[in-house]
């Protein structure tokens, strides 16, 4: 095949996917930036250039700051816990534990359920007075507590749902990595008399680093991307205690129809995701142990 035929084929094969990607990923990212410097068209008033007005509004908006801090707490509260649990689960179902098949099933099931369905079930679980959680705490003589209705516990209640939903998903990636590890490593360590804990810390964990990085990046993205449970369980309340950034964008954009301000908020989210991407490259540069 001639060189120009190669070029032509390459471009033509790429064309359909490129058009859709450009239209629904690259164009909207650029358009968000553009619209964040303009006003929202209202009635007969067309959109005008307003400079950094939307960003000034953002800096002065306490709900924005709360949604940002909530989101950071949400990330801190869910990511390390779900990754640790995922690793534990993977080690367990990879070993010779009794009832391994059932355990793997139990851990992984939340992954195939829609978040929206899961949220409904947990909503029932958390229901004041007759929800299961209330019945259990009541049986132990603890005072009644409205888990989702109280400012102090609502975000934590959502975190539990997220960890429950995600740990089994991340487990799969660890399981895949563990199954690719040579069994001879463990045999050699056993002959040398290394304890299981020592082997895990010094051999297994370092070899799992690439998986951990992959899972971590996914977990961070999910922490900013998944708000289905907020829609179902709390709608950002009580008193904005569970307002997450993407949910706030949704409210501003589609409840208050302020698309310009929503664009400025989206820019913050894109910036955050960009930082995650850069950090990821930086880590890869510093060579995580690849086998």
């Amino acid at each position: 095949m001639t060189r120009s035929a190669q070029w032509l084929y390459g471009w033509l094969l790429l064309l359909p996917a490129a058009v859709l990607l450009a239209l629904f990923t690259h164009y909207p990212a650029v358009a968000t930036l553009w619209h964040s410097f303009r006003s929202t068209p209202r009635g007969s008033r067309a959109s005008t250039f307003v400079g950094v007005d939307n960003y000034a509004q953002l800096v002065d908006d306490p709900i924005f700051w709360q949604s940002l801090t909530n989101n950071l707490w949400f990330a801190i509260g869910t990511i390390p816990l779900s990754i640790t649990l995922a690793l534990l689960m993977a080690v367990w179902v990879n070993g010779r534990i009794a009832g391994r098949g059932f355990l793997r099933l139990a851990y992984f099931t939340p992954t195939v359920l829609p978040m929206i369905a899961v949220a409904n079930i947990w909503l029932f679980f958390y229901t004041p007075e007759y929800g299961l959680l209330e019945q259990i705490t009541g049986a132990f003589g603890m005072p009644a507590h409205n888990w989702l209705g109280s400012k102090n516990s609502a975000l934590a209640a959502l975190m539990v749902v997220t960890v429950w939903k995600e740990a089994g998903f991340f487990m799969i990636f660890y399981l895949a990595a563990l199954q690719q590890m040579s069994p001879q490593l463990a045999e050699a360590a056993a002959i040398e008399g290394a304890s299981r804990a020592y082997f895990f810390r010094r051999v297994t964990l370092p070899l799992l680093m690439p998986t951990t990085l992959f899972v971590l990046v996914n977990a961070v993205i999910n922490a900013f991307r998944l708000v289905d449970h907020v829609v179902v369980m709390t709608r950002g309340g009580p008193d904005n205690a569970t307002e997450l950034l993407l949910y706030y964008i949704y409210e501003i954009g589609f409840r208050f129809w302020d698309s310009a301000y929503a664009a400025a908020l989206t820019m913050v989210l894109l910036l955050l995701l960009g930082v995650v991407a850069l950090l990821q490259f930086w880590f890869l540069e510093r060579k995580v142990h690849y086998q």
Partner: peptide, 17 residues
Amino acid sequence: LQLMVMPDVLIVENYRT
């Protein structure tokens, strides 16, 4: 780039489109 900037995040502009 789409692995980071997923359509889920670009809801406002995609709605406009």
